[in-house]
Amino acid sequence: MTDALYEVRNISKNYGAVTALDNVSMKVRAGEIVGLVGDNGAGKSTLVKCLSGVHQPSSGEILLDGQERHWRSPHDAIQAGIETLYQESGLAPQLSVGANVFLGREEMKPGILGKLGFLAQKSMDARAHADLERVGIAVPSSNRSIAQLSGGQRQAVAIGRAVAWASKIIILDEPTNHLGARQAGEVLHVMRAARDQGLGVIFISHTLPHVLEVTDRIVVLRLGRVVKDAPTSTFDQESLLGTITGLIAD
């Protein structure tokens, strides 16, 4: 009801004749993890892209801290404190860990060199290492390229980057995909840590046990509409699955 940190109201998104989102409303509070689930094609990815500024909704409102906002690009959303971890990798594999953590927010050398466009690489590497450690992620040296890391390590860097930079909202699209049980557990741990820092977390996943384990509330999308929005405690795995597939009536 009150104190929604990030909210969408009645947003729709059409691609030509196809309606990907139909009058969707949802919100996330500070210090809350909201699960966003739905079958393939339910509109999760489209919603994520609207939330993160990649796409603009065809209609409806987006509110941050109660203020209506219009994201013209991901840059706008990032500036406002919203970090997104995309399902398609959000990392540049050929760049180093440090370069990825600072991508788009590069630290420049002091003085004239910085004005000429030169990077403070050493300082960024050190800070990236410290930032990742702060959010509970240990990766090998910051000047390694992402391509040299394992899948779990890559995901850790991506999440660490999002958590380190987010000041309000963090959106995680399938962050536990392709991860082993232990690594997935660590991702869930990082999400809880982010919530405890007072961030609003939106967690999109197909892995229902993870959703049930970590979220406070679950929003179910089907065919572009929100069919259920309720506290996690009201679901079990069977009822959640039934709601997603439509076997259980809305």
Binding site: V54, P74, H75, L91, A92, P93, G104, F118
Partner: peptide, 24 residues
Amino acid sequence: KAKFGRYTYAFGSNSFATRAAGIS
């Protein structure tokens, strides 16, 4: 050594990630 080159690599490495990082 500079931002221009960094973005050049980033764009070639993963254009989606580069856009998503707020780079034009």
